[in-house]
């Protein structure tokens, strides 16, 4: 049995997959709510079809709002249960060491797409700087998700309240909320594609992917991928 290191507790795992499920549904329903030739991502066929499926755009909106509120409620619940974990997560995610992390990020991007030869051709050392609990790629996406998520949730709430409690004087806010909601989702989605590939498809992160079910990673994985963290926990164990 390889040595295992605990990485996520049960509430972390729950919120990750809960979030994933919500995002998937919100994205599917949300894209269906955009119907304007200048902006809708896949043309008007998709929203049309989806709306017909649920019996009209109003129903689709209601579903989207329902899931959105459930998503927000899920996070509130998570914060209540595991506030410490959330604080740890945020501290790790936003702790960026510019020199090391930027170099890691750039090199990693080239490595993953063009390969190490490209780096060598540029006269650079293809080996990556050591990373902590999260690598810079994870941090970048997590940052985008946290900031984007807050924007999405806040603008979502504004839109939800628009035809319930807000008056005409709030129209400007609501209109900007629509725009920011759209932009934030777009940006997060761009990151999400990479995240999904790296975590679920790319073989090198397979242990990390598994840890989103089991909560633990093997010692070797931790050592190679999160050396600084491994150093810390190894020191602590001794």
């Amino acid at each position: 049995m390889p040595r295992l290191h605990k990485r996520h507790d049960r509430s972390d795992i729950f919120i990750h997959w809960f979030n994933a499920a919500c995002w998937l549904l919100l994205l599917l329903t949300g894209v269906g709510l955009i119907q304007n030739p200048a902006i809708d991502p896949f043309g008007s066929g998709y929203p049309e079809a989806l709306r017909n499926l649920v019996g009209g755009g109003g129903n689709l909106l209601a579903v989207h709002e329902g899931i959105g509120l459930a998503w927000i409620a899920g996070f509130v619940l998570y914060l209540l249960v595991n506030f410490k974990g959330a604080r740890f997560f945020l501290a790790e995610v936003f702790a960026v060491s510019p020199g090391r992390d930027m170099a890691w990020m750039l090199k990693k991007m080239v490595l993953m797409t063009l390969g190490p030869k490209a780096l060598k051709l540029l006269g650079m050392d293809p080996s990556l700087p050591d990373q902590g609990y999260y690598n810079m790629g994870q941090k970048a996406f997590a940052q985008a998700s946290v900031v984007g998520g807050i924007v999405i949730a806040a603008t979502g709430v504004v839109m939800y309240l628009s035809d319930r409690t807000l008056g005409a004087e709030a129209s400007g806010w609501i209109s900007w909320a629509v725009t920011l909601h759209f932009i934030a989702v777009g940006l997060v989605f761009a990151g999400l594609l990479v995240h999904v590939y790296m975590a679920a498809i790319s073989p090198e992160e397979r242990p990390g992917f598994k840890s989103m079910f089991t909560g633990s990673v093997p010692d070797g994985y931790a050592k190679h991928h999160h050396r600084l963290w491994w150093n810390k926990i190894s020191a602590g164990e001794e």
Binding site: V54, G58, N59, L61, A62, V63, E65, G66, I67, G68, L69, A70, I72, A73, Y160, R164
Partner: peptide
């Protein structure tokens, strides 16, 4: 279909409100 879903959703009341129209 939505009745089942709505029961579990936090935004259940709003959801039904949306469907009534």
């Amino acid at each position: 279909a939505s009745g089942l879903f709505a029961a579990g959703a936090a935004g259940g009341a709003a959801l039904l409100g949306g469907l009534r129209r």
